[in-house]
Design a protein around this nucleic acid. Structure first.
Length: 592
RNA sequence: GGCCCCGUAGCUCAACUGAAUAGAGCAUUUGACUACGGAUCAAAAGGUUUCAGGUUUGAAUCCUGACGGGGUCACCA
């Protein structure tokens, strides 16, 4: 509920009274008034000009007059410029809002149960450690889940672990050949990195063998398949599928190492899950869908026994759902998994946090489920996010340009440690407190950086410049919070309301208006599944506060009344910043 | 090639979904209190929103075309 919603009924009422126009909220265009004009909110009049055949000037004056007449408690003044009716809201309204919010009498965000949401995110392969792209996925997924939870949804977080397949066998084969029994324990290397190293080594060896074969005149495709190490890997996958005890034992051992590594990273970055789905346990799911689809004539069978769905009428292609040998394909597994998830947690909405390279796949998945008339099909939403690229282009494992998650966090921590020590503001912290602070700031910087951009968009990560501590960044917002807390440590606002006759200064009002927008911003984030609006908002609050702070003294205010007002503003600003950053998974310190 | 997405300041991103003079940060230049934390603030400079048409009172936003970039078109996952 924002002020824009508060004034809409009044405007609709006025239009009804003046012109007999029956309108709904969506017919009104209301913006916050640009700073160069007087007023708080602006009604755009052009839309009514044609239907009412009056000049914008005349309309504005008539509507403005009517509003003041109808509700002088809320509206104090108006002016009309071109086709824009600028409306000023009374200070007493703002003061009431501030007192209620600052005292905690009204909560910052509305709640109440709104339904069940399942969020699937992270979904790594168990053959290499997490990288920057995974971080964007994890931060997005966790944040969207948190936002939904906060506004009243029941949320279930799911991770899919891609723990089987040829790529997993690659690191297994390489380990067998080259490790001489080494383990993460014996080498002191974190489990996921340890296994990842063998995956890389597989690639190196494979390439070597291919070159040898190609030198002998073999084509690239044939060499790829016929390289001995690849043959060995294919054999291993078959053994795995046949349940060969030795292969299974190795597989479990190495996956175990990876999970140990993942769990460490997840703990560090704050990702958590209500349930893990292992592909090794779900990859055979979905076959009952094939029967069902055939019975409902949604699918059809080709002579060779393979099963297909024809989506050409929907502008897509024909898609296979079952191989001729009767085994399921990727999409079939996903159909089964959607059903399994629904069994585990009957969801109204199911959010898939998956990179945009799978846009087509997700479209097909939803469409098939809709055609099968699954009750949960319409609730499926693909939260598609763009790749994180380097200035040189896409990250590539083979070229070693992948930015490792653990390394990146450590680098950030060390940058922040240096900076913090330089400033010397927390020299009295003990080592534990310091380490916690560095974690808070490093992750704050990283999460903010990845979440401040619209998820749908591709983004560029420049290792040299990207993680700054100044300006539009996590630490800068965290700093503002610490700064406010510093004042509040010296004095807390007194309980009780301010006199309603109090006059707000422009800098005070600007901050207050922004603070009042919080619930509206969060609602927008919910509607769009988009945490970036909250990141931008949190920064704007910090910026607005800093401007206010530079101009006006809180503790040495010109009167006790002003001091109380500003203390309340400080208190509400700190609460709002902490809450908004919390929705992004970013903690804010009291000192830094 | 078919389909989908994108193109905004030197760089990284905004623009409330069609409204007022397109805004922030970084980088560059200049300035700031013996008042509460300078990871801050104030200011300058930086734009033909890739291009060409069209719709509209009004277009970065919608439509058409061109150019440029990315993704995807597997009985891989």
């Amino acid at each position: 509920m924002g002020i824009a919603d508060t004034i809409k009924p009044d405007i609709i009422q006025a239009l009804e009274q003046l012109y007999g126009l029956p309108l709904s909220n969506d017919d009104l265009t209301i913006n916050t008034t640009k700073p160069e004009f007087e007023g708080d909110y602006t009604l755009v009049l052009f839309g009514f000009v044609k239907t009412l055949k009056k000049s914008p000037e005349q309309l504005g004056n008539e509507i403005g007059t009517k509003l003041l007449e109808n509700n002088p408690q809320l509206f104090s003044r108006y002016n009309v410029i071109k086709g824009f009716l600028n409306l000023a809201i009374t200070d007493s309204y703002w003061l009431q809002f501030l007192t209620d919010a600052a005292s905690g009498k009204s909560s910052l965000l509305p709640a109440g149960h709104k339904g069940n949401v399942i969020v699937e995110y992270s979904s790594p392969n168990t053959n290499k450690p997490l990288h920057l792209g995974h971080l964007r996925n994890n931060f997005l997924g966790w944040s969207v889940a948190e936002i939904m939870k906060t506004v009243g949804y029941s949320v279930f977080k799911a991770a899919i672990l891609n723990d089987r397949g040829i790529h997993i066998c690659k690191s297994m084969v390489a380990w067998k050949k080259f490790a001489n029994g080494a383990t993460p324990e014996s080498t002191g290397i974190k489990g996921d990195h340890f296994v990842g190293d063998y995956y890389v080594q597989f690639g190196v060896e494979h390439k070597k063998e291919m070159e040898k074969l190609m030198a002998g005149g073999m084509s690239k495709e044939a060499a790829e398949k016929n390289a001995p190490i690849m043959q060995e890997t294919i054999k291993m996958l078959q053994d795995w599928e046949n349940g060969d005890p030795e292969v299974r034992a190795l597989w479990e051992k190495m996956n175990g190492w990876v999970y140990d590594g993942f769990n460490e990273t997840y703990k560090k970055i704050g990702s958590d899950f209500d349930k893990n789905y292992f592909e090794s346990q779900t990859y055979l799911l979905g076959k009952e869908f094939v029967e069902e689809g055939l019975a409902k004539s949604v699918f059809y069978k080709k002579p060779d026994g393979s099963v297909w769905i024809d989506l050409t009428a929907d502008g897509l292609d024909e898609k296979i759902v079952l191989r001729s040998d009767g085994t399921s394909v990727y999409i079939t597994q996903d159909l089964g998994l959607a059903d399994k998830k629904y069994e585990d947690f009957p969801y109204d909405r199911s959010i898939y946090v998956i990179a945009d390279e799978q846009n087509y796949h997700m479209k097909v998945l939803k469409l098939i489920l809709q055609k099968l008339q699954k009750p949960y099909a319409d609730g499926i939403y693909h939260l598609s996010y763009g790749m994180v690229e380097l200035p040189t282009g896409r990250m590539k494992t083979r070229e070693g340009t992948v930015v490792d998650a653990d390394d990146l966090i450590e680098e950030l921590k060390s940058t922040i440690k240096t900076k913090t020590e330089e400033l010397g503001k927390v020299d009295d912290f003990n080592p534990g407190e310091l380490n916690d602070l560095y974690d808070m700031l490093a992750l704050g910087a990283l999460k903010f950086f990845l979440l401040r951009v619209d998820p749908k968009k591709r983004m560029v990560f420049n290792p040299e410049e990207s993680i700054d501590l100044h300006g539009f960044t996590g630490p800068s917002v965290q700093y503002t919070h610490a700064r406010i807390k510093s004042i509040l440590r010296k004095q807390q606002p007194a309980a009780g309301a301010l006199p309603s006759s109090h006059t707000l200064l422009p800098k005070e009002k600007e901050l207050l208006l922004l603070l009042e927008q919080y619930a509206v911003v969060v609602e927008q984030a919910v509607q769009e599944y988009n945490p970036s609006v909250i990141a931008i908002y949190a920064y704007n609050v910090a910026k607005s506060y800093n401007t206010f702070y530079a101009d006006l003294s809180v503790l040495n205010a010109e009167s006790e009344e002003k001091k109380q007002l500003r203390l309340q503003l400080c208190s509400l600003a700190a609460r709002t910043i902490a809450s908004a950053m919390g929705l992004l998974g970013i903690r804010v310190p009291d000192r830094m």
